[in-house]
Design a protein around this nucleic acid. Structure first.
Length: 260
DNA sequence: ATGCCTCAGCTCCTGAGA
């Protein structure tokens, strides 16, 4: 069973690439069972549900005008769908959760935070606290759980192209990483680091300055698995191929393979 | 310190992203 997360930075622009990628994965013999998308940047009425149905996917979505917006695609229907964090008042569409094949899947677009000390950074910290409280309850109810998405946080220097120059900048501050480790402490694991990875492995590269070609990126898109799922994890990879497309998203998809 | 790029929208500039 393959699960993936991808911040596609406008679904209107990237829909053909998403469909191509899903088709290519299926053609390779192991289709993506669940795909979490972030940054749809569209209202719910614009969501291309027919295109995904035709591609063999069920869809749940939670859109918003201009910014944010998340979706959960799955080959079998998702049940018990939740949008945003229960109990956390939020006017941004950032979270969608559902149960697929007995696995609780949470797809999330974490706040960017803009700059340490800013209002947006404070919002990010409050959002992270709200998320943690809810994920703790979700884990109690669903031991087989995956939390994946665009976290907008690096774990450590391995996730940074320039650990010195980017020290304490947004996505790389101690305060953000504290919250990321607190999520891990609930009983989750960074599936990417369960496996040997090439040095300088990233999931996002700035559009500017030929950052992708120079591999100047960050690893900010993650797939966390619960204790119960950890023994089933077989591989976790960043698929950089879609980042070489014409008009790519600035993020690449991350793919986790779980034993059946 | 800023632009470098990309996207959406109150669209020929601005805000935001990361």
């Amino acid at each position: 069973m393959k699960l993936a997360t991808w911040n596609i930075n406008s679904l209107s622009v990237r829909l053909p690439q998403v469909l191509d990628w899903l088709a290519a994965q299926s053609a390779s013999g192991s289709p993506i069972e669940v795909l979490a998308l972030q940054e749809l940047k569209m209202t719910d009425d614009k969501f291309p549900v027919d295109a995904f149905t035709a591609a063999g996917y069920c869809a749940q979505w939670f859109g918003q005008k201009t910014y944010n917006g998340v979706a959960l695609l799955s080959r079998t229907p998702a049940t018990d769908v939740v949008k945003n964090i229960p109990g956390f008042d939020d006017d941004m569409a950032r979270v969608i959760a559902g149960t697929v094949e007995e696995v609780r899947v949470i797809g999330a677009y974490f706040p960017n935070g803009q700059e340490p000390g800013s209002d947006k950074f404070e919002y990010k910290m409050e959002w992270l606290k709200g998320l943690r409280k809810w994920v703790k309850a979700e884990l109690d109810a669903h031991p087989k759980l995956v939390l994946m998405g665009d976290f907008n946080i690096t774990f450590d220097e391995l996730d940074m192209w320039d650990p010195v120059g980017l020290k304490d900048t947004i996505h790389c501050t101690e305060e953000e990483r504290y919250h990321l480790r607190a999520l891990i402490a609930l009983g989750l694991h960074d599936s990417f680091r369960l496996f040997k990875q090439a040095p300088k492995s990233f999931s996002w590269w700035d559009y500017r300055d030929f950052a992708f070609r120079r591999n100047r990126g960050l690893r900010i898109d993650h797939i966390l698995v619960s204790n119960a799922l950890k023994p089933l994890a077989q591989a976790c990879l960043v698929d950089k191929l879609p980042r070489t497309n014409e008009r790519p998203s600035d993020h690449a998809p991350v793919v986790l393979t779980l034993a059946a």
